[in-house]
């Protein structure tokens, strides 16, 4: 099959299926209309958990950064196989 025939067949088939997904996406669009215009990520739609955008919570006056000496990753990366073995 040449390129033109592949494309004609694929788009033709998509059109037959596309009517279905087109309808499904209309719902998506409705959902999008309900979005609070980028105020918070999904599931974090309240002031307190979206501190990054508008923090009203005061930080402590003491220096929060005593870990300059903590230079070793200590998170889930330890669980990814070979993750620590590659270069260290």
């Amino acid at each position: 099959m040449d390129n033109r025939r592949i494309i004609t067949a694929a788009v033709g088939s998509l059109l037959m299926l596309g009517l279905v997904s087109g309808n499904a996406m209309a719902d998506d669009k409705k959902m999008d209309m309900e979005k609070c215009f980028g105020v918070a990520k999904a599931g974090k739609n309240d002031c307190s958990s979206n501190k990054s955008a508008h923090s009203c919570a005061g930080q402590a006056t003491k220096d929060r950064d005593p870990m300059d000496f903590v230079a070793v990753p200590k998170g889930t990366c330890e669980k990814i196989s070979d993750g620590q073995l590659k270069k260290m």
Binding site: K51, S52, A60, K62, R64, G75
Partner: peptide, 27 residues
């Protein structure tokens, strides 16, 4: 501290997987 704290929170909000991978202290 508010300035650094807010920017830290903004980064933690954008990079939650990095924070989990390296841990909160390292992050």
């Amino acid at each position: 501290n508010n300035y650094f704290g807010n920017l830290h929170d903004a980064l933690a909000y954008a990079y939650p997987v990095i924070e989990q991978l390296v841990g909160k202290d390292f992050f």
